[in-house]
Design a protein around this nucleic acid. Sequence first.
RNA 1: GUGGCUGUAGCUCAACUGGUUAGAGCACCGGACUGUGGCUCCGGGGGUUGGGGGUUCAAGUCCCCUCAGUCACCCCA
Length: 436
Amino acid sequence: MSAGALPGFRDFYPESFSQRSWLFDRWRHAARGFGFQEYDGPPLEPLDLYTKKSGDEIVGQLYNFEDKGGRAVALRPEMTPTVARMVASKANALRKPVRWFSMPQLFRYERQQKGRLREHFQLNVDIFGEADVSADAELLAVACTVMRDCGLGPDDVKARVSDRRLLSAILRGLGVPDEALSAAFGAVDKIEREDQVALVKRFTTAGVSEEVAVKALAMVRASDFDALRRDFAGHAEVEEALTRFDEYRALLTAHGVIDYLQLDLSIVRGLAYYTGIVFELFDAKGEFRAICGGGRYDNLLQALGGVDMPALGFGMGDVVLGELLKARGKMPLGSADVDVWVAPVTAEFRRSAVEVATALRRVGARVETPLRDQSLGKQMKAANAAGARSIVFVGEGLRDRGEVEWKDLRGTEGTQTVIPLARLTDAVKAALAATP
RNA sequence: GUGGCUGUAGCUCAACUGGUUAGAGCACCGGACUGUGGCUCCGGGGGUUGGGGGUUCAAGUCCCCUCAGUCACCCCA
């Protein structure tokens, strides 16, 4: 084995590069469809941009080093601090709400495992300056639209959605004291990973009774909207959160993505900076890690940039999504693809063939010609291997009468027509338009 | 950072309880085939058996270390 790429890093050969491009096209198309504008920032940032937000422990998971000017720097592990800085420093000049997206390559120094490498591309979609629930609905709609554009419907992918305000209200309504809320969130976050005994213990350690703990866990597991409405009738805080959620659902219906929605109060998104509606996208069979995660983080800009502005966003990586698309047969194969192969029938027509190829390229065709003398049989094979849709034979006909032979390579018995060179370019152009 | 499993050609895999020069299919290149493709046939290139050390008359095979892959833990931006 020769030395390959560094652990957790990928070589993109043409086949996988074209799959990557296919995915990027869908990301970009979906985000732009909602009026989001694309931006980018530096891949290398000051280290303290990340330690300020996440503490020094984060350094163990970063690609960081000292540059030649003695600055402590790191390859970006996430986009949020960068975009927060960019928005904060021009906050007053930007039309609100700010709808931005980016497709950065991100890095983390971690042992790789399924769906997690040391480098990946991530679609980042953010909205700044809008506190209304309509922004939350639009954000999820973008994520679901990406799924749909990739051929993944509500039967393939579920958006598990919770609201931290709703969860807090329920917990408080059950009698969990404020100082135990953080521990309770921690327990809810582990609901799929730890057994009941361990989960209950997280509550009791924080001073919550076992009875309340059991009840809270059951409610989170059920995540039953109607039951919550009944159980907490008259409880203002819960009702307010439920009303907000009703509006959220109505808007998702209007966006045409309601079928993806699945209320799931166990979605907490770590113990990070989220403040409102949070969500994660999963494949319906549960074979993969989360495809996408995000939510509302109204206090983050204040903490990072000193600007008080509500914000929400999500990140969607290319690795898990790519694995899912391949597993479901939704990812195109990424085979080679040219429109026309121009074949000199003998060596003496090499230059004529190049001239014909040049004329075809000028009308937008992807054209390949052989770089050395080859028999026609060889060229036919090569043209097929190159994925060419048609082949143009350049020989005596062009020299004597200004004509070439144009043959369709698709199908088993391609039709072949004699056509004046002057008309070939238009014919190829028309064929291109007909079969995109 | 911790632990389990796995490393033979570009890919998928063979090679008896340790025993000759590590094989096959696919892929690639060439030929049959210098005016017409997918097929077929023939040939060719390609390996430090991941690397290093050890045991043995003899190691792809057994042992140790290391590297890499993979899965889980931790963490999740």
